[in-house]
């Protein structure tokens, strides 16, 4: 019981941060949309489709940020056994999976007009798909136990195994692809990015990050409430 005693300080801090993050998300995404859709030029090679970049690339970044959050939280949970770290890890995986899904779907919508196909078994795409599988595996594993403590620890070990394995998968997939496909087909645009495109890209990325933060805080609160509910039910049945 004492273990779940004091995430209150964190929750107070997080709740104070929440409105600011939400406001930042609205402002950044709004200005990113404005610049991205109306005030930035079409690419000289890709035409208007380059605008998909503003929703696609930040999603891919957040997919990675999600796994970093998951892995660091898992490490913290295994080393210090801090219950908050377990909640953060559980909260991070569906959020990371959502951004990974956005990256895959918008990538397919970008690939069809540019490469003439929705999907290629290109190294990048394949390793992002594997990242999605790892998120799904983590979610399935943490929720597969009657005892949430046990699920959290198993999930933490899996997340760390994934850290070791992800670079190996990435490397093998890179290598596998170069055997089969000439890289030239798959090069994106090929031009260095115009500053007029940089600005909306970074505004959108900031907005995505704020969304990530808001979702993470809310999910930690939801999971914490779930824990408290469990404890209350148990203590009520004991009484």
């Amino acid at each position: 019981m004492h273990r779940f005693a004091n995430p209150t300080r964190f929750l107070r801090l997080a709740n104070a941060l929440l409105p600011w993050l939400a406001a930042a998300a609205v402002l950044l995404l709004g200005s990113g949309l404005w610049l991205g859709l109306l005030r930035s030029p079409a690419d000289y090679q890709q035409g208007e489709t380059v605008r998909i970049m503003y929703v696609h690339v930040p999603a891919a970044w957040m997919a990675m940020a999600g796994y970093t959050t998951l892995a660091l939280s898992s490490l913290a949970f295994l080393v210090w056994k801090h219950p908050l770290a377990d909640l953060a890890a559980r909260a991070a995986s569906p959020i990371g999976a959502s951004f990974t899904a956005i990256a895959l779907v918008t990538g397919a919508l970008w690939g069809q007009p540019m490469w003439g196909t929705w999907w290629v078994w290109d190294a990048r795409l394949t390793s992002v798909l594997v990242l999605l599988f790892l998120y799904l595996g983590h979610m399935a594993l943490t929720n597969a136990f009657d005892d949430p403590e046990r699920g959290g620890r198993a999930g933490a070990v899996l997340a760390l195994v994934g850290v070791v394995n992800l670079p190996i998968i990435k490397f093998s997939v890179d290598w596998w692809n170069t055997l089969h496909q000439p890289a030239s087909v798959l090069r994106l645009g090929g031009s260095t990015i115009d500053p007029a495109m940089m600005k909306p890209l970074f505004l959108m990325a900031g907005g995505y990050l704020a969304v990530f933060g808001v979702a993470l805080i809310l999910r930690i609160r939801a999971l914490y409430a779930e824990r408290r509910l469990r404890q209350l039910r148990l203590s009520l049945t004991d009484a």
Binding site: F133, G137, A140, L141, A144, F145, L158, V161, G162, I169
Partner: peptide, 21 residues
């Protein structure tokens, strides 16, 4: 997955992606 529900499917789901290399 020791003690997990539906351990058979779960173990395949988490191990197969790791075996890709």
């Amino acid at each position: 997955v020791v003690g997990a529900r539906r351990a058979g499917v779960l173990v395949a789901l988490i191990v197969l992606p790791l075996t890709i290399p």
